[in-house]
Design a protein around this nucleic acid. Sequence first.
DNA 1: TAGATTGTTAATCGATTAACAATC
DNA 2: TAGATTGTTAATCGATTAACAATC
Lengths: 216, 216
Amino acid sequence: MANKDISRAVIRRLPRYFRYLGELKDVGVEKISSQDLSEMMHVTASQIRQDLNNFGGFGQQGYGYNVSYLYDEIGKILGLDQKHNLILVGAGNLGRALAGYTNFEKRGFYMKGIFDVNPALQGTKIREIPIMPMKDIPEFVKANNIDVAVIAIPKAAAVEVAKILVDCGIKAIWNFSHVDLDIPDNVMVESVHLSESLMRLSYNLNQYEERHGKKG
Amino acid sequence: MANKDISRAVIRRLPRYFRYLGELKDVGVEKISSQDLSEMMHVTASQIRQDLNNFGGFGQQGYGYNVSYLYDEIGKILGLDQKHNLILVGAGNLGRALAGYTNFEKRGFYMKGIFDVNPALQGTKIREIPIMPMKDIPEFVKANNIDVAVIAIPKAAAVEVAKILVDCGIKAIWNFSHVDLDIPDNVMVESVHLSESLMRLSYNLNQYEERHGKKG
DNA sequence: TAGATTGTTAATCGATTAACAATC
DNA sequence: TAGATTGTTAATCGATTAACAATC
């Protein structure tokens, strides 16, 4: 299960395999060949086999892959069987949406605390999770065995907060702020840059219109 | 400005250049060399020059790049100077957060309507934008010159809604539902799969712990 | 056994980096 | 002019695809 040097491209694709296998499992499909899966996912069968074989031989010649088994194995590779406590920093629009995100538990992440600068929010709760002042972060992180933080605050504050989080030993940050957090290698950062995603949409839309006319 | 066959990798990077140039501009920096920018962004200078030269020579030998000019040019390449009307489908937690997302206007996107299945929400507004029943989508899209839809609803509904949107001539979809929308080539889809992002975080966190021990 | 399909090696393709001539 | 730095070609690297022997 411990694997060195898996390429980023492969890791990017793993969750998508996991999603498709989960759906197949849900509708009761027991086995699938790389060929059939490739048609469903619009990728090559070769790529699927290559990707999976980075982690071991999950299939069987002449048969294909057992859906349920492969689903579980990819889940383990993704570490979804591990439990982690997390905190949310920022209870604005996006933060509140993330606090209500029910998939955390399904992936092994448990939200234990929420932090915000707004004094009006302090003492209130979201889904039974207390909202606390920013200054309480270090103590809370240490006391509650927190190793992941979700950051959904303006970029200026994000840089500062990231530093605090790193100092109190957080191990990973899910970053929604519009900034690249420059933190030590031993802290993982996964960023969701909505703004950049919107610009890519804009680019593609614009390209299409330039090629086909605005009312194409 | 019309450019064929720019690789996806380059497009993925453009918004990031745009962000850094915007920040440089904001602090009053007038020019920058690919070398200096590369150090700031942690990429190679060569890559920056290659990327930019896909769209034309924006720099000057012996000088570098004019920050403000390059910022504007990349903005044009990304189509941020174009205006588009959009609707939001889904006024749940995430939908409400997106409705409050103030960057839309800055990127040329104007939210004109919100749609939701919940009857209790109908007739109410978010930021002066009316929430309407799903069945009104086609009429509204046609009447208000809408060409982009933001989808933030459960995956089962998303597939169905996407079909309706395509039928009434929408040109691009910003998809937050956990599903790959299988729609015609002439409709652009930009997906933000939060769930997959969280799984990548999980993978990296897990890898780190396996290599360094749980309390590394 | 024959057929199917994997695991894996080899070939191809594309993206990144290095190098340098052009030129401001 | 000399120095700096781009634009661009060539070299390298990595990722994807094709092919097929292994094997269920």
